[in-house]
């Protein structure tokens, strides 16, 4: 009986947490459709004007284009240089491997705000601060290791024997890569690509520190407008937030068809998903 009560309490808490989360999200959505809304449970009248207003005033088409460009560039580069690295880390043994793994793990462990300021200083020193390239370079810092650590277990799942037997059948290294590894790694590449995509679109700190006027991603633009509250009607900012949410959710929904939600967090025990 006590066990039941305990279970019930747990589910009630989770329910509360989820309701509160939904409340938070719903409030933003409702507000974005409100004509005017003050001190009432629901706005007296609804409108979609704030979306057209936000689209025009915040130059959202440009911001969205920049965001997607940055995100796709980051995904492409992270996979291109993370894939071979993951292969070597999964397949080869060498003395420096633990050091290397730690080195790749640090950008994921250390908060972005901590290394973001010296990184921004460096990139501004090279003259790429405030540009799209600067944002891409900065966001890649945690994303390359993320791609490596997502791809690693996928490589480990592919048996050595497959490569060996392909070799015994006369395949060259390039052929093994193209005809064995690449097709078998497709799920891994997809998973890594999608998770890097979601994390890049929602990355705030690094994009914020590096973004200039023309290189703001959606979430940075949103932040600046929230912070500059009072100048813009709050409904238009919420409209922008809803557009941002829809962008993330679209990618997330696609991602969740291929990725288990728990793959989005670290595993504590070193065993991998």
């Amino acid at each position: 009986m006590r066990g039941r009560m305990w279970k019930l309490a747990i589910y009630l808490f989770l329910l509360g947490f989820i309701l509160n989360l939904l409340g938070i999200v719903t409030h933003v959505v409702v507000s974005s459709f409100a004509k005017r809304w003050f001190g009432k449970p629901l706005p007296p009248a609804f409108t979609t004007d704030w979306f057209t207003y936000a689209w025009r005033e915040f130059e959202l088409s440009h911001v969205l284009f920049i965001t997607l460009f940055i995100a796709l560039a980051v995904v492409f580069i992270a996979l291109a240089i993370g894939f071979p690295a993951a292969y070597v880390l999964a397949r080869r043994n060498f003395n420096a491997k633990p050091v290397l793994l730690l080195l790749y793990f640090l950008p994921l462990l250390i908060p972005q705000m901590t290394y973001g300021i010296p990184l921004a200083t460096t990139l501004y020193g090279f003259g790429v601060g405030g540009t799209v390239i600067g944002v891409i370079l900065a966001v890649l810092v945690p994303m390359v290791p993320l791609a490596v650590f997502i791809l690693l277990p996928f490589f480990e799942q592919i048996s050595f024997n497959l490569e060996w037997s392909a070799q015994m059948l006369g395949a060259s290294r390039l052929q093994i890569f193209r005809r064995i590894l690449l097709p078998l790694m497709l799920p891994g590449i997809l998973t890594a690509g999608l998770l890097v995509l979601v994390n890049t679109i929602s990355n705030f700190e690094l994009a914020f520190l590096l973004a200039g006027g023309g290189s703001q991603t959606l979430v940075v633009a949103l932040y600046y407008n929230v912070f500059a509250g009072g100048v813009r009607p709050v409904y238009s900012i919420d409209a922008m937030a809803v557009i941002y949410m829809c962008t993330v959710m679209a990618v997330l929904l696609v991602a969740l068809r291929f990725v288990r939600p728990t793959q989005m967090v670290f595993r504590l025990d070193g065993r991998r998903n």
């Binding site: 938070i24 999200v25 409030h27 933003v28 979601v198 929602s202 990355n203 705030f204 979430v219 949103l222 932040y223 929230v226 900012i237 919420d238 937030a241 941002y244 949410m245 993330v248 997330l252 989005m264």
Partner: peptide
Amino acid sequence: SLGVVFLSEG
């Protein structure tokens, strides 16, 4: 996934 900015606004 939504990130802190959206969450804070909400």
